[in-house]
């Protein structure tokens, strides 16, 4: 009963947030509300047992996305222009689509039904075989990095490609480092002190999430985002130049490529042991030891690429011709 209540309350809260995003015209509130939306959906994901997913959503949606959108606002506009055309047609289209989709759900198995087809097809195989074949407790990591390693390699490449795309789109307009420090946050003493205290624990936590992903919620995707968040918060408070001195853009671009290369390289190594691509079982003395090593390496590659994409994307946005002046908000 309490489960159902929490579930419904969170869903209603999400709907309320989405409606207020729709109604707001100040883009700053729209972006902040979309951060709230991500955070509440992360809560709901925890409630639905998807702890790994919730972790990612909280780090990505409420953290990085919000920062990127605010950077975009600083470069574009702060308000949405008033409507210039009729909204009746979109409303009708959306209403009819919604009705069709609801009609489609009427045949679906009920929420939480253990006999639903999705739970009886291949899922039990992974749940029962992970302990013996892969030897790690987190089934999500086992499927992600080993059983379905090909797909994750593809997704890492998509992230890599998107990062390259952002760099190509914004590279022409990036301001050259002038040696001048942007002093926008210099008078925020509390922010500066708190940031200094926070950065160490954030980096340490990112490493924990990276290397503990086999045993608990976590892994390369989450760790990469958290790792990048530490550098982004540093750049936000101490200025882009200081962040570039700590981690030069060139180094980030090398890491960006090295991560994908590492993932792909682990697959090539399995060739030399006479195994299939990305079959880690030959990498160690026993099959499960090989799986452990393989998963550790590919997750590290994922973490490198993800954090480098996030940091270089932030550098590209923040390095545009207009630095964010905090008094303008």
């Amino acid at each position: 009963m309490i489960d159902t209540t929490i579930n419904f309350a969170l869903l209603l809260f999400l709907a309320a947030t989405a409606f207020s995003i729709l109604r707001r015209t100040t883009l700053f509130s729209v972006v902040m509300l979309s951060g709230v939306f991500s955070f509440v959906s992360a809560l709901l994901l925890v409630h639905l047992d998807a702890v790994d997913v919730a972790f990612t959503e909280a780090a990505v949606g409420a953290g990085i996305s919000t920062v990127l959108m605010l950077s975009t606002l600083a470069l574009t506009a702060r308000h949405e222009a008033p409507a210039s055309r009729s909204r009746a047609l979109p409303l009708i289209v959306v209403f009819l689509t919604g009705l069709a989709l609801i009609y489609g759900t009427l045949d679906m198995p009920h929420f939480g039904d253990p006999s639903a087809p999705v739970h009886t097809h291949v899922a039990p195989r992974y749940i029962t075989a992970t302990a013996t074949e892969i030897g790690i407790p987190n089934i999500v990591t086992a499927v992600l990095a080993s059983y379905r390693g090909f797909d994750t390699l593809g997704e890492t490449t998509v992230i890599f490609t998107a990062g390259i795309g952002v760099l190509l789109l914004l590279a022409g307009t990036i301001r050259e480092p002038t040696g001048l420090r942007i002093t926008a946050m210099d008078h925020h003493l509390v922010l500066r002190v708190v940031t200094k205290v926070l950065i160490g624990p954030i980096l340490l936590f990112a490493l924990y999430v990276q290397f503990h992903g086999d045993y608990g919620p976590g892994g390369g995707f989450q760790a990469g985002v958290i790792f990048a968040a530490a550098f982004i918060i540093y750049a936000l408070v101490f200025g882009l130049e200081a962040a570039r001195r700590a981690v030069p853009g060139r180094a980030v671009r090398w890491i960006l490529a090295a991560g994908v290369l590492m993932y792909g390289g682990v697959g090539v190594v399995s060739f030399f042991f006479g195994k299939n691509y990305l079959d880690y079982s030959a990498l160690g003395a026993t099959a499960t030891a090989g799986q452990h090593l393989g998963i550790l390496l590919v997750e590290f590659g994922v973490g490198m690429t993800v954090s480098a994409v996030m940091v270089s994307t932030y550098y590209a946005f923040a390095g545009q011709n207009r630095p964010i002046g905090d008094e303008e908000w």
Binding site: A50, S65, L68, H119, I127, F221, V306, Q320
Partner: peptide, 29 residues
């Protein structure tokens, strides 16, 4: 246990989603 397969699918989709959002925002700029 709840079904792990949707979790794997969505976990990577979230990170791919933010990468493509960044690309979209770069286009907006």
């Amino acid at each position: 246990y709840s079904n792990p397969l949707p979790h794997v699918l969505i976990l990577t989709a979230i990170v791919v989603g933010v990468a493509t959002t960044a690309l979209g925002l770069a286009l907006v700029v």
